[in-house]
């Protein structure tokens, strides 16, 4: 069962594949009275679930927007358009524009090698790709300072040639690439493993080139998973705080990303402005989740359509 083993190895991100594999098997036990929980238990558990998610997730999300709009729309838009905010937005977009394509390219290459071929050390490689998930973001920043900082391994060389990496934009880009490293790969590997390589072999035997096979056969099959992986990678790249905080040096207008700008405003007790800028990131995460929900729905719907014909 390569499908399930691959799927279950992921660190909780491969929601789409989960749904696809399940194919709606365990429906709520309607009309199966023997295992139907009593109304009281049902209502009680649903209430507990709703309260738990409300207190820890939904209300905090609402707070972001109410605090942002507390002093009115004027203050809200002023906070978003002041020069420091604009330069933070600009830097964040710039960093994501490098980090996301880099990890997208890596994720597709890694998924192709891992899902379509067998080689020794494969499970070790998958574990190593997961590593950045397990490393604290602060440590992710620290390791780049140990290499590129003034006291670091390459410090003297960089100073001699007047190159700045940490406490400058390149360090922020590197730290962001590190923390978002696994997202696309982890989303694609289980999906592509589940699909096997029969379709690709058919395309090749019919005379398609390797690239044609990849673009016309492999990519369309994994498009929703790829999209979600990229979106999650992007949300994390734009919102990364710990790692970027370590390597940025907090130079206002130069090395401040959106989350760092939020921190500065908050620590200066400019709460409305802090939440206004933070609401941009909250909106981004909401859009990410919305597209994910649509993707999950699409995948599970098509899986159910396919179900009778494949006889699964």
């Amino acid at each position: 069962m390569p499908v399930e083993s691959a799927n279950n190895r992921s660190l909780g991100f491969s929601v789409i594949t989960n749904v696809q594999i399940i194919e709606g098997r365990a429906r709520p036990p309607k009309g199966r009275p023997a295992i139907r929980d009593s109304l009281g238990i049902r209502l009680g558990l649903i209430l507990v679930a709703i309260l738990f998610l409300a207190v820890f997730v939904l209300v905090p999300l609402i707070v972001v927007f109410t605090e942002a709009l507390k002093k009115g729309l004027g203050v809200y838009f002023a906070s978003l358009t002041e020069p420091a905010a604009l330069s933070a937005i600009e830097l964040t977009l710039f960093v994501a524009a490098i980090a996301v394509p880099a990890n997208l390219f890596f994720g597709v290459a890694a998924a192709w090698a891992i899902a379509k071929f067998d080689f020794p050390g494969k499970s070790l490689l998958i574990t190593l790709i997961d590593l950045p998930f397990a490393v604290s973001p602060v440590i992710a920043g620290l390791i780049y300072i140990l290499i590129f900082g003034a006291q670091g391994w390459l410090g003297p060389f960089l100073q001699e040639h007047d190159i700045k990496i940490v406490f400058a934009v390149p360090g922020i880009v590197l730290a962001t690439i590190f923390v978002t490293f696994p997202f696309v790969a982890r989303e694609l590997i289980p999906l592509m493993q589940a699909q096997g390589s029969e379709e690709e072999q058919a395309a090749l035997s019919l005379g398609a080139s390797g690239w044609q096979t990849f673009w016309r056969v492999t990519l369309p099959n994994v498009r929703w998973g790829l999209l979600y992986g990229v979106l999650l990678c992007n949300a994390r790249a734009m919102g990364e705080f710990g790692a970027v905080s370590v390597v940025s040096g907090h130079i206002r207008g130069l090395t401040n990303t959106i989350p760092l700008h939020v921190e500065i405003l908050y620590n200066e007790y400019k709460f409305s402005a802090a939440f206004a800028v933070a609401s941009l990131l909250a909106l981004l995460s909401l859009v990410t989740l919305l597209i994910k929900s649509i993707a999950t729905w699409n995948v599970s719907a098509s899986a159910q359509l396919r179900e009778p014909s494949t006889g699964k």
Partner: peptide, 29 residues
């Protein structure tokens, strides 16, 4: 998984929010 109730989809989506919401935003909120 087992029950049907109004707002279930929203609740399901809300579970993923901590993955997608930047930590600094969650922190100040």
């Amino acid at each position: 998984v087992r029950y049907r109730f109004p707002g279930k989809r929203t609740l399901d989506a809300a579970v993923d929010l901590p993955f997608a919401l930047p930590t600094a935003v969650a922190g100040i909120s």
